[in-house]
């Protein structure tokens, strides 16, 4: 069974053809080892990936390109970049297995709206890539009135307008999480990808999530993971609890995403540690 049909079946996007069970031994293996990556990459058609750039700062794709050690291998042998500004010399959006959408969508920008809708039509899977696409991030603060387009005022996470299959929040997401996600995708490692699928539903992020969903819920244990992970240093710890400086918060949702008391991927962690 090809990787993409495996993913689609998992996501319930398409029912699998009856004859697909032919190679059960291979499709059952989901280890993330490098040999495995190569093997799967050889066996399966390369996933066709498109990159759609909406209202974001390009930081997410820059973070992707920081995976120097695997980037060449990734781009030449493991995936096909079939669409994307600066990445592929293509004007017509082709059919894609996966569309990585960076940036939130501006309601006043016809072109962005059109790109997003078209991506949903042409891609089997849509991934909100980075916090602007996932939660709106700092574009949530926009009130319009700026040059060169004073009318560009309202920016939304893409899941407000289209169905999103998975999200990789981060402002930007780390190079490592991008590499890990791509490897898991190529391996069809659905266990690893489950949190990304769940996070597609998180279309709002804020430092105040820590207070509302952790401290107020009697779950905070003062570990400091939120303060460590905030990419704008908006979170400090006072008396063992997070204290958020709202002026610094860009609403990326990372502090709550990294908090050990928001969701807890126990099996994956044990697997990664060999425990």
């Amino acid at each position: 069974m090809s990787l993409i049909s495996k993913i689609k079946r998992f996501l319930g996007i398409e029912t699998k053809p009856a004859n697909e069970e032919a190679k059960p031994a291979k499709s059952g293996e989901v280890g993330a080892s490098e040999q495995e990556v190569e093997k799967v990459a050889e066996e399966n058609a390369k996933p066709r990936i498109g990159y759609i750039h909406l209202s974001g700062c390009t930081g997410d794709v820059m973070s992707l390109s920081e995976n120097y050690d695997i980037l060449a291998e990734l781009l030449t042998n493991m995936v096909d970049i079939v669409y994307g500004q600066t990445l592929a010399d293509v004007w017509e959006m082709p059919e894609m297995d996966l569309a990585l959408v960076e940036g939130s969508v501006c309601l006043q920008d016809e072109h962005s709206l059109h790109e997003l809708m078209e991506a949903r039509e042409k891609a089997n899977m849509v991934c909100a890539f980075g916090s602007c696409a996932a939660t709106g991030c700092f574009t949530r603060y926009s009130r319009g009135g700026q040059q060169a387009r004073p009318d560009h005022e309202s920016f939304l996470p893409i899941a407000d307008l289209i169905k999103v299959d998975c999200a990789i929040p981060g402002c930007p997401p780390s190079p490592e999480i991008i590499a890990k996600t791509v490897v898991a995708l190529i391996n069809g490692d659905m266990d690893y990808l489950q949190p990304m699928i769940d996070l597609a539903g998180m279309t709002e992020g804020c430092g105040c999530d820590l207070q509302k969903y952790v401290v107020n819920q009697a779950l905070c244990i003062g570990c400091g993971t939120c303060a460590m992970s905030c990419q704008t240093r908006a979170v400090d710890m006072t008396s063992g609890r997070p204290e958020v400086n709202g002026d610094r918060c860009v609403k990326c949702g990372i502090c709550y995403t990294q908090c050990p008391r928001s969701w807890w991927p126990e099996e994956q962690i044990k697997k990664d540690l060999g425990l």
């Binding site: 780390s174 490592e176 890990k180 992970s229 990294q258 807890w264 991927p265 962690i269």
Partner: peptide, 20 residues
Amino acid sequence: CQTMGIRKMQSYPFGVRFLA
């Protein structure tokens, strides 16, 4: 509980670069 925060960051370093 602190080891949990650290291990989760290592397995899923969404917003944490070059630390895991």
